[in-house]
Amino acid sequence: MAGEKNGQAQDINQLLKVRREKLKELQDNGKDPFVITKYDVSHHSQEVKDNFETLEGQTVTLAGRVMSKRVMGKASFCHIQDLQGMIQSYVARDSIGEEEYKAFKKMDIGDIVGLKGEVFRTKTGEISIHAAEVTLLSKSLQILPEKFHGLTNTDIRYRQRYVDLIMNPEVKDTFIKRSQILKEIRKFLDGRGFMEVETPMLVSNAGGAAARPFETHYNALDEDVKLRISLELYLKRLIVGGLERVYEIGRVFRNEGVDTRHNPEFTLMELYQAYTDYEGMMELTESMFRYLAETVCGSAVLSYNDTIIDMSKPFERITMIDAVKKYS
């Protein structure tokens, strides 16, 4: 078993060495890919597919990462992955030129390229780009996880989110949805007269929650301070100061355990409203969740882990004691 692992490590080291040698060869020939800083992109992959009827026969430029490559003598196929997804390209020696085709054959999976060519549909019906130019924009010196098995190692997925984004397309959707949720929370609260604020992160007393804080030192004041564990105390002071509706979306820090569901720094949202009670806050919370489901997910009825969650219905109001009696 140890010998097998050593063999795999040697194979990987050899592959990494080959990639660095390819880079050196490019640099020696005045074709250093790392000096290209700009490439004009006209379309993304999904745009081309969605607008095929109007774009067929038109020249487009895309940029992305080479995710697969099939070389067949004078012509090859490759798949390019960009922000929106994946698209196939047909790369023929007669179309891009002999020297450029030789350069293309030396490209590796993971390399980032600029692609210019005509939009067409192959005999098998796949919307593709007939390449006129393939420009190496950045050389990938690391090796992507083997595609057949994918990236499943939880530790790598959480420590190297960029690799997870490359290999697991559904992860990108989570990032996009998170951004949309924050945008819509702001839109919803702003529509209700709330004002977004920023409050101090370095505090003398890390209150507002029960958690162990990170401690650091403020050199200018020669004073020990803590990173905030909550947003609460300063927001309440703003209410005292006469701002009637405030909210903050900000990082807080808790010097505690780490696992796939707990991080020592995370984003928290808190809001405070004067002249209302807990009934008013329940109504606001329910309305906001329903609004977010409808605007971000397209429907108030959601499916999560094979469970249907219907946010269009009125939320149940229940005391903690009654909830314990009902569900335990």
Rank of each mutant, 00 (worst) to 15 (best):
E270H: 05
R261S: 14
Q88L: 03
G250V: 06
R20G: 15
R161M: 10
R20C: 09
D310F: 09
R237P: 01
I96E: 02
D32M: 03
I321H: 10
R20K: 15
M282E: 07
L62I: 13
K102N: 11
V258F: 03
P200Q: 10
A75N: 03
E316W: 00
F52Y: 15
G110T: 12
A132I: 05
F253S: 09
T285E: 05
N168G: 08
G117L: 11
N6L: 14
A131T: 04
M67E: 08
R290L: 13
S89Y: 04
A103Q: 10
Y218H: 15
D94W: 00
A206Y: 13
L189M: 14
A323S: 05
V18K: 15
L151Y: 06
K139Q: 04
L238D: 10
K236I: 06
R159W: 11
K38A: 11
E270L: 04
E270K: 05
K236Q: 07
M86S: 15
Y162M: 04
L292V: 01
R70P: 12
Q46S: 12
D50R: 12
N13C: 05
V258T: 08
E283Q: 11
G73M: 08
T216D: 09
D108F: 04
E118C: 03
R237Q: 11
E196V: 08
K69V: 10
M311S: 00
P200T: 09
L83P: 00
L221C: 07
R178G: 00
F266Y: 12
R121A: 10
K183A: 14
